[in-house]
Design a protein around this nucleic acid. Sequence first.
DNA 1: CGCCGTCAGTTGGAAATTCAAACCCTCGCC
DNA 2: GGCGAGGGTTTGAATTTCCAACTGACGGCG
Lengths: 155, 155
Amino acid sequence: MAATKDPRPCSIADTLALVGEKYSLLVLREVCLGNGRFDQLVRNIGAPRDVLATRLRRLVDAGILTKRVYSERPQRFEYRPTAAGLELEPLLMILKEWGDRHLRADDRPMVVEHACGHELVPLVTCAACGEEVRHEDLTAHPQSPGWTVSGPVAA
Amino acid sequence: MAATKDPRPCSIADTLALVGEKYSLLVLREVCLGNGRFDQLVRNIGAPRDVLATRLRRLVDAGILTKRVYSERPQRFEYRPTAAGLELEPLLMILKEWGDRHLRADDRPMVVEHACGHELVPLVTCAACGEEVRHEDLTAHPQSPGWTVSGPVAA
DNA sequence: CGCCGTCAGTTGGAAATTCAAACCCTCGCC
DNA sequence: GGCGAGGGTTTGAATTTCCAACTGACGGCG
């Protein structure tokens, strides 16, 4: 799990170090759906119980989930997303949208409805101008020397 | 890698099966930055060469990357994102934004500029109404029986 | 009380992956 | 001929994953 050499310093990599392991984002999915109990997670995700236990510890440590007691005697727990965890939900929506479009043929296993009454189609926009983000409109500026980018990728 | 039992059918899981393995999204990052050559990828990502080779094959098979010859004699290759690959770039922006906000203290290693002249702050919005997506505004509707959701997660 | 069932994990050992370094092959260049 | 770059593959050891079984604290039932 240690970094091999010294790769590009990057917040994407840092975030993935927390939520990029197998099953972690599926845990977040279930927890966002309100299915936060251990056995529900095992069933809905299909992960081995030990791996799941490890992931849950990590996500709680990272401040993405909290472990709450929903019943003393018998003691029973439930995992819920923190505010920081909920901020990752858009990630799930984009993964879902991509999968629906590219991997499925009109048999979407889940439909998400937005409060406005329409089915949610998530769009990533620029907070400053409101435009949808397109690759050609982006320019990356590395802040540390030595970590260059090779310019825009033309079609 | 086989699914343990039969977990919830889900496009999020399907998409993660393609891009959720270790390093895959970092490959996409580099390729979107224009650093598509094998040795660049090894250096910038810090992945073992063999694992990287495996990931690249998988991403090409999935239609997320293409392998192009940029020089015959000596034969040299370069990986580039396909249209489908570029559609995953917003994912990277959200991971970056989350990491910048939660994992860093004003030492962002990369700044992305949008064509509008401002630094990019990605926002996920509803295509129908334009509003920013908030957890409380979403309702999930599973399409297959047996895969319930336990209702909204209150604060 | 004795037994069964649920929930939330832990344990143990075999199987699959990852890691790191070394190696290979094709070329261009001097 | 030797060196170096680019783009991988091979090898063997170190980690992780997987799976099934087990634990332990209860609650309920007869």
